[in-house]
């Protein structure tokens, strides 16, 4: 058995916060493409990491690229959970995309963090993903 971590899928705009988090995390991850004609099709369980782009009313929280990805039922079949990111300064819409996806896909919101995350966030997410990966292995076995 290889590393117990589940696969990661993430979106990051050009401001790059989520990308920097994923890089520091150092785990295998697929970045969702911005281009409308490119698709990612998952064939194994994964965790989605998604930033929030909501206006004051919460509209537009989930990036279009993520919606396109989740509109594929096969991708929804493999999603284990979502990690939402954002900025607390946006008040009630903080990490809203994570909450929306959790509800829409009926999976747990695993964690939330701000911007590119802190060292504490990295440690917690790594160990959380490891636990999740292990439990996946034992369920599969």
């Amino acid at each position: 058995m290889t590393a117990p971590f589940p696969e990661l899928v993430y979106y990051s705009s050009k401001s790059g916060n989520t990308h920097r988090f994923i890089t520091r995390l150092g785990l295998s991850a697929t970045k969702l493409p911005e281009e409308q004609d490119q698709f990612v099709n998952m064939t194994e369980p994964f965790v989605l990491v998604c930033p929030t782009y909501a206006d004051g009313e919460g509209r537009g929280a989930v990036p279009k690229a993520v919606i396109r990805f989740l509109n594929n039922p096969d991708n929804r079949k493999f999603i284990l959970g979502v990690i939402g990111t954002g900025n607390r300064n946006f008040g009630e819409t903080y990490a809203l995309s994570g909450r929306i996806i959790a509800e829409k896909c009926k999976v747990p919101l695993l964690y939330t963090f701000e911007l590119a995350g802190t060292d504490t966030d990295i440690v917690r997410v790594r160990s959380g993903l490891e636990t999740l990966g292990r439990s996946q292995c034992s369920t599969a076995a």
């Binding site: 607390r88 009630e92 964690y111 939330t112 917690r124 959380g128 999740l132």
Partner: peptide, 13 residues
Amino acid sequence: ALSPDSENHDFFS
């Protein structure tokens, strides 16, 4: 106070 109604989620722990 900064972000009412949006507690920090840590399902992992």
